[in-house]
Design a protein around this nucleic acid. Sequence first.
DNA 1: TTGAAAGCGCTAACAG
DNA 2: CTGTTAGCGCTTTCAA
Lengths: 342, 342
Amino acid sequence: VTKQPRLADVAKAAGVSTATASMALNDTGGSRIGRETRDRVRAAAAELGYRPNTVARGLRTRRSQMIGFVGDDVATTPFAGQMIRGAHDAAREAGYLLLMVDTSGDPAETGEAIAALQERQIDGILLATMYHQVVGVPAEIGSTPHVLLDARAADGSASSVVPDERGGTLGVLSELAAAGHRRIGHVTTSEPVEARRIRHAAWAGHVASYGLDPEALLAEGATSTSPGGYAAAMRLLDRDDRPTAVFCFNDRMAMGVYRAAADLGLSIPDDLSVVSYDDQELIAPELVPGLTSAALPHYDMGQWAVRELLRRLGEPDAGPVQHLMPCPVSRRESVAAPPTDF
Amino acid sequence: VTKQPRLADVAKAAGVSTATASMALNDTGGSRIGRETRDRVRAAAAELGYRPNTVARGLRTRRSQMIGFVGDDVATTPFAGQMIRGAHDAAREAGYLLLMVDTSGDPAETGEAIAALQERQIDGILLATMYHQVVGVPAEIGSTPHVLLDARAADGSASSVVPDERGGTLGVLSELAAAGHRRIGHVTTSEPVEARRIRHAAWAGHVASYGLDPEALLAEGATSTSPGGYAAAMRLLDRDDRPTAVFCFNDRMAMGVYRAAADLGLSIPDDLSVVSYDDQELIAPELVPGLTSAALPHYDMGQWAVRELLRRLGEPDAGPVQHLMPCPVSRRESVAAPPTDF
DNA sequence: TTGAAAGCGCTAACAG
DNA sequence: CTGTTAGCGCTTTCAA
């Protein structure tokens, strides 16, 4: 076990001062370092297997090359994990690493987490939520650069990225429209979440544009789960003027809709077309028939958030940006033309 | 935006030297600091909202209070996410934070990741794999303390924790045995993974103990997926002497078995009992009827790994420990007595 | 084009 | 019981 070489060792091996060595390795100091010297220093560093001590450097530069990722369970929840991946990849690409803290959504824990990250001199913080939310930025953040991920600041004071729920909804609805559907029902949850609000509004506008009354085509479940979807679908589909297609709040509710359709003897997509939201990994592609669903762009949002954060590190006075990330439609087999006898 | 207070500010406010302030805050130096002084320093620190600069401290103490977590996609894969949660919680409890890097399993990337972590002076590294594996420890790890998570070192040179696949298998099989089953089939994958090997061996031993020939009760799919399970199950169940129960390699294959049973007109659990492995969130509890499955103790493994790592930081000369984490059975409705006409 | 030297904020050895 | 001092390894003035 031999000790790690320090910059001084590299400098000595190259026959220069540590100052020169530092500049040679970092390409700083402009034209100050001769080409030949630079190469000599680089060779010595490679020879010795030198790796800079980021902690020492950070003490000097007040930069740690680390980004804090604060999530309310995001880290550990299957669903939104791709946000981490996106953030991670964008960070690595720029030489940063992610320091992760999960808070279970508890404000006190969030404050603690932010403080713990600041103590470690992170260069910026990503504040991520497990699902699309409108939040207040924790006071503890102080002047630490930050970006909201899958959340929007109530007061618009921070840069943020959220899914374009409206666009995604119109996307799947246009799949139905293209197949000839008009009487499109909506199975949703009664939980007052941001996603529900926007998806519902977009759907209501769409069916209203056909002169239909959204109220008559709406069914709510108590929760956004399979049982919730089942219950709502039974109410919506077990009647003569049932819709020819259903737009589900999410894939989990769609599972329930599938079961309800089966129980009612309705075949998907021949008797009933179904579209949904989230495009969740173990659900949408695994259902039979495959479920057409608007994807939540978790990866892209994570990536965008890091890039925005890094941009703000460069230009601290830039104004905050609210970004809507498109939700592409994953087209599968759950959509067909409406039954002709309708 | 006022500047962060430094230790010197606290010391001045309390009328002591920085050395005294440091010791007072950290409770170091034994009985050296008077009670009254200590309180005065603490009060001053609280007053100023002082938070230590961990980077500066780390430069001195060569400790960063950070643990590196390198995973081959673990961070971002739904499945094993609870490992992160377990590691995270255990780390926070001890005042550590997790610095995460994902490598997509690429050895070169893994080496890079380890180096990047070492540059940041992490105190130790967790090497996690997405599924139970036998691995070589990357050479880049050098003398950095490390623990393997959901993986075992081929040469036993590192501490590690993996699921007790054998115990879990026997656990679900004993559910079947208790219900009266003997002719228990096994639907598994032909992929040569560690979990397959152990689960298969445990099952084979079990049925052999009844004097049955495992070969006659075995069906393999090409992949450990729903289609793989479907294909295997069709072969295993579409015959007169079909087993009365099936043990599936994992929940995804069990999904296929459910579909096959439905296609063959077999009702679960009345005509066929099914047990499985993994207890995967969106599958086992969502299937109808609920699937009895041995749970992979991801959370516990993550927790154990961090604790073991911290222990090794304390006693660097301790020998490596190979730990088997129990896989508790989640009992649901997929098991009943064998059909009587058999 | 380069070297010497100061110092980032903290802890630990050494004096008192 | 407390203060002074010397670094941890690096970057960055300032002088040459």
